[in-house]
């Protein structure tokens, strides 16, 4: 009987996982507690435990939705590539969940990979406010700098095939989306102008995580335990990762702590340089913070268009359009601060 014929999809998935894990543990692993954590258009995340000879291994499966074929995705890397990147980062001492195996077609449970399940917290509001993380908060910005330095030194020659996204092409991509919305935003126009006038050179491109921020960092009482969600990884300007984590939207109200709402740019830059990263160029980091803020503002406009077109008529979708003004004030604070 094929796995797909079973009535409970979790049971079929557990059988498929156990069969695949025989490549890691030839004596057999008992798979238990299969639980879906999240699912989106591009991938699903499941938690489960594998028990091998009395020892329990907490694991995570990331796979294609419904275990089907991978959809053609615009910017996200394929899951097998994500697994390869995580392993390359691990070699540079980046804290990551260790990859156990990459699924094969014959496993019959979709494309994806299995990795260790790191315990901790990803929810920014808890990390920024709960007592449990009081000792972690002061060290997080420096740790983020150290970790980014290690990510950026993954040798280019080892990388799997991933997109190269220099600043100019990123600007053009968002310019085309903005123009397509046909709604004037003078502040966004000002930001585009700034970006064109401060375009960084394209030399010295490295592996860039692409979504290094609150939500994708697993945090424990002592600090960063793992860097997650490598699906937007690309080759680009290493300063991009440091600009993105400073975007005000990731500060969750802690606006005086630019790095993720928990620390200072100076601490992050010091950690980056101390860990062997290249010399930080604060003006270039600011360029990417402006672009990141503008991207988030334009994404809010995209939400409006999917509401107006009828693709998603939910109130939630409609209301998020009224958050692009948040990014306008963030951009004005960056480009034309009132106390300057």
């Amino acid at each position: 009987m094929s796995a797909a014929a079973k009535i409970d999809p979790r049971e079929a998935l557990a059988d498929g996982l156990a069969a695949a894990l025989a490549r890691v543990w030839p004596d057999g692993a008992a798979v238990e507690g299969v639980k879906r954590l999240s699912g989106g258009a591009s991938q699903e995340t499941w938690a489960f435990d594998a028990t091998v000879g009395g020892a329990t291994h907490p694991l995570i499966l990331r796979r294609t939705p419904g275990g089907g074929e991978a959809a053609k995705r615009d910017t996200a890397v394929p899951l097998a590539t994500e697994a390869a990147l995580i392993s390359l980062a691990e070699k540079q001492d980046v804290p990551v969940p260790p990859v156990k195996l990459v699924l094969e077609r014959t496993d019959g449970i979709g494309e994806g990979f299995i990795m260790g399940r790191v315990e901790g917290e990803t929810i920014a509001r808890k990390i920024l406010r709960d007592d449990e993380f009081a000792n972690a908060r002061p060290v997080l910005a420096r740790q983020c700098g150290e970790i980014l330095a290690r990510i950026h030194r993954v040798p280019r020659s080892d990388l799997p095939e991933i997109q190269t996204s220099p600043a100019q092409s990123e600007i053009e991509k968002y310019r085309a989306i903005y123009d397509g919305m046909n709604h004037p935003h003078p502040v966004f126009e000002l930001a585009f102008r700034y970006l064109q006038d401060h375009l960084p050179t394209e030399e010295d491109m490295t592996l860039v995580h692409g979504d290094f921020r609150n939500g994708n960092l697993m945090i424990g009482a002592e600090g960063v335990r793992a860097v997650l969600d490598w699906e937007l990884a690309h080759i680009g300007d290493p300063m991009e990762d440091m600009g993105w984590i400073c975007v005000n939207s990731w500060r969750f109200g802690e606006i005086d702590k630019p790095v993720g709402g928990f620390g200072t740019r100076e601490d992050m830059f010091a950690g980056y340089e101390a860990a062997g990263g290249r010399r930080v160029d604060p003006a270039r980091v600011k360029f990417w913070e402006v672009l990141g803020t503008l991207k988030w503002g334009i994404m809010c406009m995209i939400m409006v268009s999917s509401f107006s077109s009828g693709a998603d008529r939910s109130v939630e979708r409609a209301a998020i359009g009224r958050r692009s003004s948040e990014t306008e004030i963030d951009l004005l604070n960056l480009l034309s601060p009132r106390n300057a």
Binding site: R322, I329, L332, N333, S336, R338
Partner: peptide, 23 residues
């Protein structure tokens, strides 16, 4: 002009936004 216009948008859209309250 841009500051005034944006602050008006936020007064309508998100008056609880931290950067707006600060400004």
């Amino acid at each position: 002009h841009l500051w005034k216009t944006t602050l008006t948008k936020l007064a309508i859209d998100q008056p609880r936004y931290a950067a707006y309250r600060r400004a």
